[in-house]
């Protein structure tokens, strides 16, 4: 079994880019079960209420407070990263022999009312560690750099996110809709998309 390194896996990553660790797996931290500083400031789980039984999310259900979902199960690393340096981080994580995250499991996009958020789930076979990198994109200029040349499976993944969420990826090989027909208007998985009675 590969030796699991010390507490903070992303020591020198923090030096290069300014990232914020949102969730550190407890299995690394339980040294005499005292929580270190990173673990403490993450414990803010914020509730959210809205009526569950209305069939469709009509647009007038304004939210009391937005969700700060970072209480994740099973415990993996969660990093909050800026939108600009996403490419360097991913390339660094993939090629540096210290981390060796060479598999991008999937890219999860979620519409959080105030902004769109993409989570890159990375997995390294050598050290058997999983980590998720989250990026916020605000809704006005929804653009982000593509990573399809680093991880080639992101190609179709980004086209799907463009199709369902409307985020444009800069210099993506061929950005076209894959799921919906070409002449479809709107991006279905957004929260403000109301399913018309199209028959």
């Amino acid at each position: 079994m590969i030796k699991i390194r010390e507490v903070d896996l992303f020591e020198n990553l923090k030096r290069k880019f300014d990232i914020r660790i949102e969730n550190c797996p407890r299995m690394f931290l339980d040294k005499g079960n005292e929580l270190n500083s990173v673990q403490k400031d993450m414990k803010c789980i914020v509730k959210r209420e809205y009526s569950a039984f209305d069939e469709h999310l009509t647009d007038d259900t304004e939210l009391k407070c937005d969700t700060e979902l970072n209480h994740i199960k099973p415990d993996i690393y969660l990093l909050r990263v800026k939108k600009e340096d996403i490419r360097q981080i991913l390339r660094y994580l993939k090629n540096s022999e210290e981390y060796f995250f060479e598999r991008l499991d999937c890219m999860v996009c979620c519409d959080r009312k105030k902004d769109l958020e993409i989570m890159y789930l990375l997995q390294s076979d050598k050290y058997n560690v999983k980590c998720g990198i989250r990026v916020e994109i605000d809704k006005k200029e929804n653009q982000i750099a593509t990573v399809s040349d680093i991880f080639s499976n992101a190609n179709l993944e980004e086209r799907e996110i463009y199709d369902l969420f409307g985020i444009k990826f800069i210099n993506h090989p061929d950005l076209k809709r894959i799921f919906m027909p070409e002449d479809f208007v709107g991006h279905p998985l957004r929260k403000d998309f109301i399913i018309q009675r199209l028959n």
Partner: peptide
Amino acid sequence: RNSSYSVVKGVDT
């Protein structure tokens, strides 16, 4: 029928 945006509601249409 009521919760999907891309399914045709019945072939007889």
